[in-house]
Simulated scan of single mutants.
Amino acid sequence: MDIQLADVLIHIDESLTADRRTSVETQLREIDGVVSVNNPDDKPHLTLVEFRPDKVDSKTLLEQVEAEGVHAELVGL
């Protein structure tokens, strides 16, 4: 079986506390099709999400971040 993966970079406008960043990451990880989420401490405004495009799309990922009350936008890779 050949599983296709895609990456999307989400830019978060606000400076979030560590707890808020963790909350956003957790919500993204719970989406079916999300493989990994990386939000490094040295780049807290950038969240890289690896996902299966046959299960979820980047718009849904952005909507989940925004549902956390965060202003964000997708950045193409």
Rank of each mutant, 00 (worst) to 15 (best):
V56H: 01
G69D: 14
R52H: 00
N39A: 13
T47N: 02
L62H: 06
P53G: 07
P53W: 02
S58V: 12
Q64W: 03
H45M: 03
T60L: 12
H45T: 07
T60D: 11
L46R: 04
H71L: 08
V56G: 02
D54P: 05
G69C: 15
Q64F: 01
P40C: 13
P44D: 04
L62F: 07
D41A: 15
Q64Y: 02
H71I: 08
D41V: 15
N39D: 08
S58F: 13
L46N: 05
T60S: 13
D42Y: 10
E68A: 15
T47A: 04
L61I: 13
G69N: 10
L61R: 11
L48T: 07
H45A: 08
L62V: 01
L46M: 08
D42G: 08
N39S: 12
L61N: 06
D42N: 14
K59V: 14
P40L: 13
D42A: 09
H45C: 04
P44K: 08
R52L: 05
L61D: 04
T47S: 03
H45G: 04
T47W: 01
H45W: 06
L62G: 06
A67H: 12
V65R: 06
E63S: 09
D41H: 11
D54W: 05
A67I: 00
D57C: 07
K59A: 14
K43F: 03
K43P: 02
K55H: 03
P53R: 14
L46G: 03
